[in-house]
Computed example of a mutant assay.
Amino acid sequence: MELIWFYVAIMLAISDVLHTTLMWKVFNNFYIILGGLIQQSTHSAWQTWLAHESMEAGFHFIVVSIVFLNPIIGIQAALIHFVIDITHTIFIRDMGVLEHRALHFVIESLFFMLIYGL
């Protein structure tokens, strides 16, 4: 079994930590202003949240596509991360950071195992 599934899942986890670090520690003021602008241009909290998750998926697409030099892997990574974020936010309200990361890593690993590991 090739390990590309593992490398993609690891890179997606790193990309998620990178996104959190950049947005909340480096570009914090910009991120808050951008959130306010998005909130004013949408009609509900759900639309604002979906806009945020879509932009985060775009970030993951760019990072993973550059690392693997493959936009197909970038699209797959962004989409699975987006789906997991949407699903666990709707169905699992309270989740710690460790649980959040573990959930993502397990499901993303299984997803990429199905695609690249078999």
Rank of each mutant, 00 (worst) to 15 (best):
H19N: 05
T21D: 02
L22N: 05
L22M: 08
M23V: 13
M23L: 10
F27P: 06
N28Q: 13
N28T: 14
N29L: 09
N29H: 12
F30C: 08
I32N: 04
I33A: 14
L34Y: 13
L37C: 04
I38T: 11
Q40A: 10
S41C: 06
S41D: 07
T42L: 04
T42D: 05
A45F: 13
A45E: 12
A45C: 02
W46C: 03
Q47P: 08
Q47A: 14
Q47K: 13
L50A: 10
A51R: 09
H52A: 08
S54A: 12
S54Q: 03
E56D: 04
E56Q: 10
A57R: 00
A57I: 01
H60Y: 03
F61R: 02
F61V: 01
V63Y: 01
V63D: 00
V63W: 00
F68S: 02
N70P: 00
P71A: 06
I72S: 12
I73D: 00
Q76L: 13
L79D: 03
H81T: 14
F82P: 05
F82Y: 15
F82S: 01
I84K: 09
D85S: 14
D85Y: 09
I86L: 15
H88C: 10
T89W: 11
I90F: 11
F91V: 04
I92K: 08
R93W: 09
R93F: 11
D94T: 10
M95Y: 07
V97L: 13
V97H: 08
H100G: 05
L103W: 04
L103I: 15
H104P: 09
F105D: 06
F105T: 14
F105R: 05
V106M: 02
E108K: 01
E108T: 02
S109G: 10
L114N: 07
I115K: 12
